[in-house]
Write a protein that binds this DNA or RNA. Structure first.
Length: 298
DNA sequence: AACCAGGACACAA
DNA sequence: TTGTGTCATGGT
């Protein structure tokens, strides 16, 4: 039979669970009957909202909830963050439309491997690749219902033992050698993921970019979503188009110029601003036109 | 049925 | 240093 389930409630305010778990920063959360089911640090977890309270069910012994508070970032000063944004129409509109959207604090290796797989992929496909990896190579974890199959995200050590073909069977295509190479470097200490917390953001970024398949954008995602470097501002195709539309409707700057702009303009919590803009352009601005409106001109 | 996706990389200029 | 073709796979 399944593992016993422990329930606890956390008082939260300004926390939009749906937006947070479904905004393209983490890829394993699934909706199951009004609740979100996922895995945090090898623990099966179910999350739900009711009466301004966050209801948590987990197979992990209650007591020290630090792993949960840290992952969900329950203790951040939300108001201070959104009030630090510049007072322009675009970002203020995004905050107004997405109030309660949060950044998570994910495990570095899972975040890193997932975003190596993310390049030039739609979010639904990234989720499928990550699921394939977990189903094939993740350790079994305790689950409340024996009919379900809970697994942790596979360790770097485990993936380093895979063949490139086994990874390609997870449908990650040309990213397979990247994931394999990164897993090997991380496993034999070429890059120490546990040491990046103590580095300045720029140095941590340089370390990450030593890994195969990790360029500026993937590195920034990991810096922001796993290490909490809030000055990191990942620029993908959506953010690039969004910034062009909202801030530079005529000029159309290139990627480097956008990096310059975003490194100062949005302030010390720029990474949060980035997540608001990302969610905003995807759920509000471009919904009716599905991208065509901003196609390359000429 | 084309077009594009939370890009990185080797290679050109 | 900045710009282009290529790389799998599948959603819309």
């Amino acid at each position: 039979m399944g593992a016993p389930l422990f329930k606890s409630t956390f008082q939260v305010k300004d926390y939009d669970l749906d937006a947070t778990l479904d905004s393209g920063q983490a890829f394993r959360w699934t909706r199951e009957g009004g609740k979100w089911v996922g895995v945090i640090a090898g623990r099966w977890v179910s999350l739900g909202m009711a009466n301004d309270g966050l209801i948590v069910r987990t197979t992990s012994e209650p007591g020290d909830w630090h792993w949960l508070r840290d992952y969900l970032q329950l203790d951040v000063e939300y108001d201070e963050i959104v009030e630090s944004f510049p007072d322009d129409e675009a970002i203020q509109g995004a905050v107004k439309a997405c109030r309660g959207l949060r950044l998570l604090r994910q495990e570095p290796w899972e975040c890193l491997a997932s975003f190596i797989c993310s390049s030039s992929k739609q979010i639904v496909q990234i989720r499928q690749i990550v699921k394939n990896l977990c189903d094939r190579f993740g350790e079994h974890i305790a689950v409340p219902d024996e009919s379900s199959d809970g697994r942790a995200f596979p360790t770097a050590r485990r993936l380093a033992r895979c063949s490139e073909g086994e990874l390609r069977e997870c449908k990650m295509g040309y990213r397979a050698p990247y994931v394999l190479g990164a897993a090997k470097v991380v496993t034999d200490g070429g890059v120490d993921l546990n040491a990046l917390n103590d580095l300045p953001c720029a140095e941590a970024r340089r370390e990450l970019m030593k890994l195969p398949g990790v360029g500026r954008k993937v590195a920034d995602c990991v810096l922001l979503f796993a290490y909490g470097f809030e000055e990191a501002f990942p620029i993908d195709v959506w953010i690039g188009r969004g910034l062009n539309q909202l801030y530079f409707p005529k000029r159309e700057p290139n990627r480097k110029q956008l990096e310059q702009f975003t490194s100062t303009y949005f302030g010390p919590h720029a990474g949060y601003a980035q997540q608001y803009l990302f969610h905003y352009v995807r759920t509000v601005l471009e919904k009716p036109v599905r991208g065509r409106a901003l196609a390359k001109k000429k």
